[in-house]
Design a protein around this nucleic acid. Structure first.
Lengths: 176, 176
DNA sequence: ATTGAAATGAATTCTTC
DNA sequence: GAAGAATTCATTTCAAT
């Protein structure tokens, strides 16, 4: 359902600028990209409407908010059924300590990125909000030494094809 | 070094609003919080200077950018020495597929959040950028079914104390 | 779809409290 | 620090292309 959107060089340039600083004005954008400010406005509006741009979010420093310790929790939820995972997800999302939540393939069902004050706070969180829940079969805690947000998210460069220069074994919409 | 910053209710209200929508105007902010727009401006400027606010970033939909498949890669880098992990981190950060990178405690040294076009693209990424590197001892790939960004990051509620209402075994700055 | 100019409204400065 | 008025500047609209 989330269908890929066609983007021209102007859109890409605008997105790169805005990912760097989402407060860049349409004037600056226009000057940099080489179109009129009103065009930038129009492009950004369309990128929003088409769903490429989801929103503008503030980036905060957890450490300065008294949450200097971050961790990833790998969680098994068993049995892995909708009736149990729905409420689990809602509860975890609502925790003030949660920064992100992933539902995954593999031995661990969920990965939760949390930010806490200190080890005692982390212990409290794990014991009170995770292992105390009946559906939580296992929690593995991994501390974060350091983290990086990576460069601008951009469309894949077209025309790669590396593991096996040969044609696919499973057809797909076959080429002539 | 990243020292916690004291925040009053006005700061907290402003941060909550801006996390919800970072483009909220100072006028709206002022109306909602109950102070003058110029005061909001001043507060936000100070929050930026104090390092609480790191920046304003655009939130994009990877699927609409042709990156409809996301995964977490658990990576062991061996030997785990600075000379090897420095270049590894730089290379991974520079990949257009990387969204985030974590240096962790535990059996896996790094967790890499990637966004790719499809399984073939993921296979290429793992083989060409990870397992082909000499320092990469092991990669475990976990697909992301679904993900959530969690509610506003806020300072920890003061005055909890749950696992053992008793006093700590290890002293710390002892209470009278 | 893009423009440039006009109008609307927001960000920012400054003086006063 | 905070407020309010005044200024500067950005956003948004619109008629024309």
């Amino acid at each position: 359902m989330p269908e890929s959107v066609a983007l021209d060089p102007v859109d890409l340039h605008i997105l790169r600028m805005l990912q760097n600083d989402a407060r860049t004005t349409y004037r600056e954008l226009a000057a940099e990209v080489g179109v009129a400010p009103s065009t930038c406005l129009d492009r950004v509006a369309r990128l929003r409407r088409s769903g490429v741009i989801l929103g503008h979010r503030l980036q905060l420093d957890p450490a300065r908010l008294g949450r200097g310790l971050e961790a990833l929790l790998l969680v098994q939820v068993r049995p892995h059924r909708r009736e149990l995972i729905g409420p689990f997800v809602e509860r975890i999302r609502a925790l003030s300590e949660s920064r992100a939540l992933f539902h995954l393939t593999g031995p661990d069902d969920y990965l939760v990125h949390v930010a806490v004050a200190d080890p005692t706070d982390l212990q409290r969180l794990v014991l009170d909000e995770f292992t105390s829940r009946r559906e939580v079969a296992r929690v593995e805690t991994r501390l974060i030494f350091q983290q990086w947000e990576c460069g601008p998210l951009m469309p894949p460069a077209a025309g790669r094809r590396s593991p096996a220069e040969t044609t696919e074994t499973r057809p797909g919409p076959s080429a002539p």
